[in-house]
């Protein structure tokens, strides 16, 4: 059974009107931004289910852009996020659609062009009470909730990578809470999603980057 804190019950402090359609949407935007390694240049935002039906009335669209701009769930600038995105040069559009069965009713898919001109797709859902889960990155299934510090690696799919990465974390006494590995093809590029109990600083990340099979590491702070 879940342990509630008083601040789960009297909280969060948020911009309304809906914890799932507004606060959750901000968090999904923030996570997409973090996975993209910063503000993207372009974003096509595909809305599914209830998100595609009522996004305007809940400000889901403003909230998703607010998240991409890096705003917190209680930032009153969210109401003006389209104008602010315009000033910062973010090009965006919304496409309401039906992604198919098997997707949570509050699902969003970000098709991003990152600051490094990389194309990236990120899918996630707002599952209630402001809680979210990122379900896919580039159509690879993952599970990332954004409430713990998280590392996402891109690495060569060879034996021993997982133990070397976890070895570095152990060295710095960082406890792994959840971990998942996925890939598209054997012995090509693979990814690891590592959620930790403790903060991972840049020193640790640099040590992981020094490992031969590691191509890239993204550090995602809790949102």
């Amino acid at each position: 059974m879940r342990e509630y804190s008083c601040f789960d019950i009297l909280g969060p402090v948020m911009v309304g009107p809906s914890s799932s359609h507004t606060a959750g949407a901000v968090r999904l935007g923030r996570l997409a931004r973090a996975i993209a390694g910063g503000m993207p240049k372009e974003a096509e935002i595909i809305l599914h289910g209830s998100f595609s039906q009522t996004y305007r009335g809940h400000g889901t669209d403003l909230a998703l852009i607010g998240g991409l701009l890096g705003f917190n769930t209680d930032d009153v600038r969210i109401r003006n996020s389209f104008a602010i995105a315009g000033e910062t040069g973010l090009i965006f559009k919304f496409t309401p659609t039906h992604l198919g069965e098997g997707f949570h009713p509050n699902t969003v898919k970000f098709l991003l062009v990152t600051a490094e001109d990389e194309k990236l797709s990120i899918t996630g859902a707002s599952v209630g009470g402001g809680n979210v889960v990122i379900t896919h990155i580039n159509d690879n299934e993952i599970e990332l909730k954004g409430d713990l510090p998280t590392l996402i690696t891109t690495h060569h799919d060879i034996p021993g990578v997982i133990s070397r990465v976890s070895g570095v974390l152990a060295e710095y006494k960082i406890n792994i809470a959840f971990m998942r590995v996925f890939r598209k093809e054997k012995r090509k590029l693979a990814h690891m999603v590592v959620e930790t109990d403790d903060k991972v600083n840049s020193v640790v990340i640099n040590d992981i980057l020094k490992l031969d099979p590691i191509v890239n590491v993204r550090s995602i702070e809790p949102v």
Binding site: G11, M14, G16, P17, S19, D74, V76
Partner: peptide, 8 residues
């Protein structure tokens, strides 16, 4: 309902 700041 107007996207102001509140405490749930």
């Amino acid at each position: 309902a107007s996207m102001g700041k509140i405490v749930a």
